[in-house]
């Protein structure tokens, strides 16, 4: 492409007038402003917003307190304490996300092995006090399964918990009795 470097002296004036004309025409266009509280921009279904903790189809907490989300979070805004119930099921004793630091990158959702932590399209989280932006487990935990309706971690994992022995998971062979193979 030939780049033009020399312009006739009147180019400044014609260029200026053209620019003025274009801007003049723009004032008759429809403004693109979305008047927020009354009108809203369409939000994509996979928009990354407020974070929730989901439950599996049986209504149990999905989170197993593996800390993977807390580790992967680039701004270190997830904190939790894992514990175990009487059936050997791990769950977080407490779980908090500091939304004043969260950058909604979605890494926690990608890291989570149990689909427990998920981002939702809700973005209206304004608060008057910063401390109100720290969400605790009560605020985060929802009743539904979120995006993966059927997934239940303990139905796939090989660990043994109360009511499900080793070898009973989906697509899992029954455990081999190693003493059987002795000559």
């Amino acid at each position: 492409m030939k780049v033009r470097t020399h312009y006739p002296p009147w180019a400044a004036v014609t260029g200026l007038l053209r620019a003025m004309w274009i801007i003049f025409k723009y004032q008759f266009r429809r403004p693109v402003t979305i008047q927020y509280p009354e009108q809203r921009a369409p939000v994509a279904p996979r928009n990354r917003g407020r974070i929730v903790l989901t439950r599996d189809p049986d209504g149990e907490e999905r989170c197993v307190g593996c800390y993977l989300c807390a580790v992967v979070c680039p701004v270190d805004c997830i904190a939790l304490q894992a514990t175990e119930d009487e059936h050997g099921r791990r769950y977080p004793e407490w779980f908090q996300i500091n939304f004043s630091r969260c950058i909604y990158c979605g890494f926690c959702e990608e890291a989570c092995p149990t689909y427990a932590i998920q981002l939702t399209p809700d973005y209206e989280m304004g608060e008057h006090q910063r401390s109100h932006l720290i969400y605790h487990k009560d605020d985060l935990l929802i009743d539904g399964p979120g995006k993966r309706h059927q997934y239940n971690f303990y139905r796939h994992a090989g660990v043994e918990i109360g009511g499900k022995d080793k070898g009973e998971a989906i697509a899992e062979e029954p455990a081999v009795d190693i003493r059987d193979l002795l000559p």
Binding site: Y26, Q27, R30, P31, V32, T33, Q35
Partner: peptide
């Protein structure tokens, strides 16, 4: 006016 020139309200 400036807003209208810039497609704002």
């Amino acid at each position: 006016l400036l807003a209208r020139f810039q497609l704002r309200l």
